[in-house]
Amino acid sequence: MKRSPILGAYAVAYLLFLYGPILILPLFAFNDSRIVAFPLSGFTTQWFGEMWADANLRKALGNSLIIALSTATISTALGIFAARSSVRYRWPGKAVVMGMIMVPLVLPEMIVAMALLVVLLTIGVPLSIFTIILGHVLICMPFAVAILTSAFQSLDKSLEEAALDLGETQISTFQLIVLPLVMPGILSAFLITFTISIDEFIIANFLGKGDPILSVYIFGQFRFPAKVPSMLALGTLLVLFSICMLAIAEYFRRRGIAKTGGKDSGGFL
């Protein structure tokens, strides 16, 4: 490898820029001052207590978990159908249909949210946690489809034929061969969609009826300077949680590739 000190220094600076704000989270979450500014004044865990004492936060967390679990389950299930169909079968109109399913990836989220909102209001569907789930599934499904498509693609078609050849039916082949081999992909799709749903703001803000949702709650609280330290405490926990989920998802994705004897061809994006 060639060594280039200038590029190396730039890379470090870039990572500092990327991680700077995230490193500030724990720094000031444990800082014994309500004002978020240097110099640091001492160690405290009071912000974590203050954060947890807020009943609204606990309610928001509960709602967010319901939304994220439902979203992850539904979008992963729909993703399995879409990925299986597009990888394994040839059918006319595939490009158009798959394009439509993936389009939320390249559409500003605000437009998706507003279009959905207008229709829901017009046909008189009352806004609730359920409507947030509807919107979240829409934007999470493309991620699930992308992850699952690569999982199904690394599955050798002749494995299924071998199972059929050895006397199994289509259904038992799916259970005995396909499902176990794509399971890491399914788990990783579930974790990723869960993480996206927990963090999502725009749909949670506009398609809900005012029930507290984690991201909306954080958005509101940051407007009050007095609440910022406890939000930093909450942010610290959320970032830790996200990184754990990601690491687990990446672990499963790699194990899936190792299992099927494929080659690693990149990460989630």
């Binding site: 002749s158 034929e161 071998a162 299992k259």
Partner: peptide
């Protein structure tokens, strides 16, 4: 019964 070109050994 068939012996596949890729052998199709169930990896799990």
């Amino acid at each position: 019964n068939m012996v596949f070109q890729s052998y199709a050994i169930f990896p799990h």
